[in-house]
């Protein structure tokens, strides 16, 4: 959990594979990297078995570039497609049993605080819509009500993609899937409202067709979770297999869905705004000077 874990052990340098050497010498550890620099440094994500053209992979890749301190981050995941990529990165990954991920992350986050005190150690949960809104729903909500200080990211592909296409709580009403041939009869769950009711300090929706926005959202969520409280990001990451989207049209679909039902929304609590402005210099959250406030009289 520091820069020490991305070094060579003495005497082993020449035996390490090229990917590992590149990661140690040209990885993002201990540097400030941004999405606009990708392609010029070695990314923490490695080759993984996810489908070609998967939007979820793109989101995970961007998220890993956006982590403010990748060397001090632990990701937690659960069953689902996402963990196939999240686990293939140079960031420690903890696999929670299906539905347990927010419980595991709560303990991990508290343990890290006991062990490392004020040094920031970030815990980021990345799970699918099934893991977050269906099977893990109870633990997700309880972790939010307890104001556990870690980030929860839902990779919302609106289907159980890994098991053949069953409907999930996040599937849209009327959607016909391979294992839901009559169409879903209920509305998509409003997890955003639930996150706000449960007291999350930061809630955002994002679609990966805007990499810089993904970066900004992830950075804010991780920084707020260090001290203020739970943060929640809901990302639309289409399943091009179950929804039969040609791989070269995945970004077109993302744009359509963004305009239709996944517009960018961001909720930042007052405490979180103050924290970001004072601690990390976010200018947009600085209190407005008196002259800029329109006179209501």
């Amino acid at each position: 959990m520091s820069l020490d874990y991305v070094k060579f052990s003495n005497g082993f340098e020449k035996f390490m594979p090229k990917e590992y050497r590149d990661m140690v010498e040209h990885g993002p550890f201990g540097k400030k990297v941004s999405v606009s620099q990708v392609g010029s440094f070695k990314e923490v994500l490695e080759e993984h078995p996810m489908c070609a053209g998967c939007a979820m992979t793109l989101f995970i890749r961007l998220a890993m570039v956006a982590f403010p301190n990748p060397e001090d981050t632990i990701t937690v995941g659960t069953a689902g497609c996402g963990r196939l990529a999240i686990s293939q990165a140079a960031i420690p990954f903890v696999y929670g049993n299906y539905g347990d991920q927010n419980g595991v992350a709560s303990g991990l986050s508290r343990g890290l605080r006991l062990r490392f005190g004020d040094k920031p150690k970030d815990v980021v949960v990345m799970a699918g819509d099934g893991g977050t809104a269906d099977i893990g729903f109870q633990q997700v909500l309880h972790s939010w009500f307890r104001k556990e200080r870690f980030t929860t990211i839902m990779l919302d592909n609106e289907v159980y993609g890994n098991t053949g296409g069953q409907e999930s709580g996040m599937t849209n009403r009327g959607a016909v899937l391979k294992m839901a041939p009559l169409g879903k009869k209920f509305e998509k769950m409003d997890m955003l409202q639930m996150a706000k009711v449960a007291g999350c300090a930061y809630v955002a929706t994002v679609v990966p067709n805007n990499p810089r926005r993904v970066e900004s959202v992830i950075k804010k969520a991780v920084l707020i979770a260090r001290e203020v409280g739970s943060t929640y990001i809901q990302a639309y990451t289409s399943c091009n297999i179950e929804y039969a989207i040609p791989t070269d049209k995945v970004m077109e679909d993302a744009k359509t869905v963004e305009n239709d039902r996944y517009q960018f929304t961001e909720y930042v609590s007052e405490e979180a705004k103050q924290y970001l402005a004072e601690r990390y210099g976010y200018k947009e959250f600085l209190p407005k000077p008196a002259a800029a406030i329109p006179n209501k009289a």
Binding site: V35, G39, S40, L45, E46, M50, T57, L58, R61
Partner: peptide, 12 residues
């Protein structure tokens, strides 16, 4: 480079 779903694949 920013939109490729695979990491370290399109480089600059």
């Amino acid at each position: 480079t920013q939109y490729c779903p695979e990491a370290n694949t399109i480089l600059y």
